[in-house]
Design a protein around this nucleic acid. Structure first.
Length: 256
DNA sequence: AAGCTTTGACCTATA
DNA sequence: TTATAGGTCAAAGCT
């Protein structure tokens, strides 16, 4: 079912930040987000030790949870704070919960609500088709697409990172979800941070494709990722070239 | 024609 | 209170 959705995700850009997310979730890198956790000016309920270590768990994780998915719309208890994320309900995220990172669901939920930092996208996609080395920003944006429509609304070079950050907003009318993608000069996504959640279902195929050339599912590519990932098992994977180039390298902010 | 990206400037938060 | 950094907005240009 959601192959499409997921496919979209993966394929969408190849960024597969999500996949990686999930993946790295398993191996969270507290350092990154932990210390670098962006300050959400939104409403950060600090009561929960998010990750107690400052580890941003993968929001996807939750989503992925069958529980959530089952609930579909009621992902999180209203008490905790209505979990506005239901957009993923339609997606099949094979993300697995990291055993070592088992964050408390509640934490996760909270964190999710706030943001999910995806870093360490250490997935090196093999790219048979190199992007010529030049990766326009717009490409990057699309890469980050996880199936949702994102629109870039800004870019900035932050001091914390040597790489520029691109700011994206969900194109859904009522969706306030935002995404920050940090890309290296190579065009590789070094860090992805999600803020807020989607309060709408993920568009199946509607408007996502288009832009870049999304390729049909490329098992080969996917496999590559999965290999590294660890356990992502999706059958979709239209890894586009972008994906390949998405050399997501774990960018650890040592400077922290 | 519509949507998206790009870039600079402005605003807000934090130290 | 001031300075720095981060994040967001808006206008212009491009696909």
């Amino acid at each position: 079912m959601s192959s499409t959705s997921f496919t979209d995700l993966l394929a969408s850009s190849g960024v597969d930040p999500y996949e990686q997310d999930e993946d790295f979730l398993g191996g969270f890198y507290p350092e990154e987000t932990g210390s670098g956790l962006p300050k959400f000016k939104t409403a950060q309920p600090p009561p929960l030790p998010i990750s107690q270590s400052s580890r941003s768990f993968a929001f996807s994780e939750l989503l992925d949870s069958p529980l959530l998915r089952s609930s579909s719309h009621s992902l999180i208890s209203p008490t905790t704070g209505a979990f506005p994320f239901q957009g993923f309900n339609g997606s099949d995220f094979p993300w697995q919960l990291p055993s070592q990172t088992q964050t408390q669901p509640q934490n996760a939920a909270s964190a999710l609500q706030e943001t999910y930092g995806v870093q360490d996208l250490q997935k090196k996609l093999e790219d048979p088709v190199p992007r010529e080395g030049k990766v326009p920003s717009y490409m990057v944006s699309r890469n980050s697409n996880d199936g949702y429509g994102w629109r870039k609304y800004g870019q900035k070079q932050v001091k914390k990172s040597e790489n520029p950050r691109s700011y994206f907003k969900c194109t859904y009318p009522n969706c306030v979800s935002k995404k920050i993608v940090e890309t290296a000069s190579d065009g590789q996504i070094t860090e992805i941070i999600y803020k807020g959640g989607h309060n709408h279902p993920k568009p199946e195929f509607t408007k996502r494709p288009s832009s870049s050339a999304r390729r049909m599912f490329n098992p080969s590519s996917v496999v590559s990722e999965q290999s590294e990932s660890s356990s992502i098992s999706f059958d979709y994977g239209e890894v586009d070239e972008e994906k390949e180039q998405l050399d997501i390298k774990r960018l650890k902010r040592e400077g922290e």
